[in-house]
Design a protein around this nucleic acid. Structure first.
Lengths: 401, 401
DNA sequence: GCACTTCGGCAACACTGTTGCCAAAGTGGT
DNA sequence: ACCACTTTGGCAACAGTGTTGCCGAAGTGC
C-alpha cells in the first residue's frame, strides 16, 4: 500500500459510509468517528470529493449543544455503471447510479449458441442503448455469465453445451470495444452481489421517474421489499443525532452475509461473505447442487447419490414443486447454518416458473431450522443478476474492489 | 487508515512474505515486486525491521546477470507467542516462535466445572511455565475455549453443562493478570487457524531441540506430515532465482481455505477463509453438526431430522466407527465443495479414539467426491488447537489481526 | 578489459494525515 | 440582553510516508 492507494482507500471509506447513509447524509464529525481519521483529515477528503462533484452538502443536523454539523451526502448521479446479464437465451443490461438504483435498462433474446462474437456485438449494442446517451461518465461495466470462468483473467470456461465459448477472453475483448473497465464473473456471484446491494440501496428512495426516459423494457420483478415511498433527494435536513442507521448496517456487528441460490438446469450458489464475493482457492466455491442431502439416495450424474440436484430436479420433473422447494430449503438451511447467513435470494428458471411456491417453501424450512426465526430473509432475485453485475462494477469506488 | 497504520500495514506485509519464505529468505527486489512497493520503500522498511531485530541478512542469492541480491529472512526467535487450549477436562499451553514452531509446552488436567476463577489460575500458571523463563518478549496470548463466546468482547457464552461460565470476561481478566494482549476464540476456530498455520510453518525446519529445555509434557501427535528433516536455521544461502515457493502459497491463485472439524459430544467446524477465520454476521458460523444429511432421518435433539450429529453419534454408539467416519466424510465433502477447501483437519474426542479410522474414512469420501482427487488434504489435528490459538496471537504481527 | 545489468543507498521531493490555533454558530444559565 | 460554554470546521505549520533522480557497488558476458 502506497500513498496514492492510501488516499483512494480513505476516499472509498468515506464514500461507502455516505452511500450507506442515504440522501439524509452524515456529518463530518460522524465520518471521522467511523473511519478513525481525524476531523481535519475528513475535511480534506470531503473537500476533494466535493471538488469532483461526488459529495455535496445536504443541510444541517440539529445542534447537540454547539455548532450544528453540516451534513454531507453522496451525489448519486455524477457517475453511473452498467451491469449486463448474459444468459443462455437472453441478455439484459441496466444502467445504475452510484446508489445502485436502476436508471435505464434494455433487454432482449440472445442466442448463446451463436458464439462469443455475436454475443459481444449484442453486449456492445445493449450497453450503447443504456449508456450511449448523454449522461454522467460510466465507472465500468460488470458482466455476469454462466460459469465456470476465470474471474481474474476474464476468460470464459467450459459452459456445458456451448463449446465455442471455452477460453474466450470476454473481458479483454469487451474492454477493447467499450473503452471501459470490464468485470466478468459468474451469474451466481452477481446474484449474491445483488443480494448484498439491496441493503446498500435500501436507504435510498427509488430513482426519479425522469431518469427512465430511455428505458426500452419493463421493470422486472424487483428485488424484494423496496423502501416504497419516494422522498425526493436533497430533502433530508434536520435529522436528529441518531442518524446513519444505514452505516450501522455496514459496520455494526459482523459483516453481512448473503447467498444467491440458482435453480435452473443445475443448482448453484453465489456467496457474499465479509463484504465481498467469496470465490475460494480455485474460484470453485458455490458448488451447491451436489451437496448430499439423502445418504444412499438416487444416483446423480455427478457420480454421488442423493445430491440436492437430483432430488430437486426429480421433484420438478414429476410436477411436485412444493417438494422441490422443500428440498432446496433443507439444503439452504444447511448452508445458512454453516455460514451464518443474513439473506437468501432465489433465482433461476425453475424458481421463476413458480416464485411464490419457492419463496414460501424455502422460507418455511429456513424459519423452522434457523436459530433466529427472523433470519435469514428470503426473497426473489427477480431480474436482479444484471443489477448485481452493476454493483460489482461499482464496488471498487467504495473500496470493495 | 492513517500514516502509522500504513506503516504497520506495510511492515506486516513484508513480515508475512518473509515468514512464508522460510529460512532461505527473500531478496529486497522480490519483496518490492510482491508488495507492489518501490525498492526504496522496501529498503526503508527492512532497515526498520532490521533495527528491531525482526529481520536479518541470510546470505546472497545467485546472480541473475548483475549484482546478486542480498537475502533477508525473518528471525523467529526475537518474539514469541503463547497459545492456550482450555478444554472441558484438560489445559494445554504452548510457546511458539514467529514461525509458529513450538519451543515449549505444558499441559495437565483441568476441572472446567470448578468455574472460571480456578481456570484463570490454571491458565496463568501454565503461561508462567512456558513463558516466565528468560526469553524473547511475548506478543500475546491466544486462548481457545469451548464456544459459544463473544470473540470481540472476549466474554464467554453459555457452555452446555457449565452455567458458571456464562458471561465471564475471560479476555479482560487474563489481560489484567498477565499484562499481555489476550485473544479469546472458539476452539474450532483455533483449530482452523492451526490448519492454516501448518502451511505457513511448513517452510521452516523443526525448532531446535535446545529450546525444548523447559517442556514438561510430551509432544502430541503433531499436525500431519511435517517437513521431517531438521536443517538448522541460517543454513539457507545461495538458493537459485526461483525461491519463495512458500510465498507463492500465500499469494498465488486464490486464498487458501482450511476447515477444522471437531467431533466430540457435538460436531462443530472452524472455517479459515480468505486469510482469516470466518465468523459470520453474528459469530455463529461453523454450525456443522445440524447439517441435514438424511432427509426424514432419525430425529435430532435440535428438532430437525437426519442431522449429521445424530447419524454420527448413533454410529459411534453402536460401535461402528467406519460408518461414523463415512457420515462425517459426506458432510465434509458437502462443505468442501461449497467453499472450495484446500485442507481438512479432524479433531475431537471421538476422532482421537480412532484417528486412523476417521482420517481414512473421511479421506476416502472426500477423494471420491472431490473434483481434484489430490485435494483436499485430510489430516489429524492432534494437539493442534493450542498451536492455532498461538497462531491467532501471532496474526496481528503479520497483518491478519 | 570493457560494456552491460542488477542491486541498493543517499538526498531532495510530493503528498499524506496530524497538531495547534482560532473564528463561527449554536445552547443554556444569569 | 449578556456571557460562559460546547461543538464545528478551516488555516497554517508540521511529522512522516513512499517516490523520484542519481550514483556507486558488484556481479556477468563478450
Amino acid at each position: 500500500m502506497n500513498l496514492p492507494a492510501l488516499r483512494g482507500h480513505n476516499e472509498a471509506l468515506v464514500l461507502e459510509l455516505l452511500r450507506g447513509a442515504g440522501p439524509a447524509g452524515l456529518g463530518r464529525t460522524e465520518l471521522a468517528a467511523r473511519t478513525g481519521l481525524t476531523p481535519q483529515a475528513v475535511s480534506k477528503i470531503t473537500a476533494r470529493l466535493g471538488a469532483d462533484g461526488l459529495v455535496a452538502e445536504a443541510g444541517r443536523a440539529a445542534s447537540t449543544g454547539g455548532k450544528p454539523r453540516t451534513l454531507l451526502r453522496l451525489v448519486p448521479d455524477v457517475r453511473h455503471a452498467v451491469g449486463v446479464h448474459l444468459d443462455r437465451d437472453a441478455l439484459r443490461a441496466v444502467r445504475v447510479d452510484l446508489a445502485g438504483r436502476v436508471v435505464a435498462e434494455s433487454g432482449g433474446p440472445l442466442d448463446f449458441a451463436a458464439g462469443p462474437e455475436a454475443a459481444v456485438e449484442a453486449v456492445v449494442r445493449a450497453v450503447g442503448r443504456v449508456g450511449a446517451h448523454a449522461g454522467p461518465p460510466l465507472v465500468g461495466v460488470g458482466v455476469a455469465a454462466p460459469g465456470p470462468l476465470d474471474h481474474r483473467a476474464g476468460v470464459m470456461g467450459r459452459v456445458t453445451g456451448f463449446p465455442s465459448w471455452k477460453g474466450f477472453p470476454l473481458k479483454g475483448v469487451l474492454e477493447g470495444r467499450l473503452g471501459l473497465p470490464v468485470l466478468l464473473d459468474k451469474d451466481t456471484n452477481a446474484g449474491a452481489a445483488a443480494a448484498a446491494g439491496a441493503w446498500l440501496r435500501s436507504t435510498w428512495p427509488e430513482a426519479g421517474a425522469g431518469a427512465d426516459a430511455y428505458a426500452d423494457a419493463g421493470r422486472g420483478a424487483g428485488a424484494g421489499a423496496g423502501a416504497g415511498v419516494g422522498v425526493g433527494p436533497g430533502a433530508g435536513a434536520d435529522v436528529g443525532p441518531g442518524v446513519g442507521a444505514g452505516g450501522d448496517v455496514l459496520l455494526g456487528g459482523g459483516p453481512r452475509t448473503c447467498v444467491y441460490l440458482h435453480v435452473g438446469t443445475g443448482l448453484g450458489a453465489g456467496l457474499w461473505l465479509g463484504g465481498g464475493v467469496y470465490r475460494g482457492a480455485r474460484s470453485a466455491a458455490g458448488e451447491f447442487g451436489h451437496q448430499v442431502l439423502l445418504l444412499d439416495g438416487p444416483p446423480c450424474r455427478c457420480g454421488a447419490r442423493g445430491c440436492v440436484e437430483v432430488l430437486c430436479l426429480e421433484a420438478v420433473a414429476r410436477g411436485d414443486l412444493p417438494a422441490a422447494a422443500r428440498i432446496v430449503g433443507e439444503a439452504a438451511a444447511n448452508l445458512v447454518a454453516l455460514l451464518d447467513v443474513d439473506r437468501v435470494l432465489l433465482g433461476g428458471r425453475v424458481v421463476a416458473a413458480a416464485p411464490d411456491v419457492f419463496v414460501a417453501g424455502v422460507g418455511a424450512v429456513l424459519a423452522a431450522r434457523a436459530l433466529d426465526p427472523a433470519r435469514p430473509v428470503v426473497a426473489l432475485a427477480g431480474a436482479g443478476v444484471a443489477e448485481g453485475a452493476a454493483e460489482m462494477a461499482l464496488a471498487p469506488l467504495f473500496g470493495r474492489g
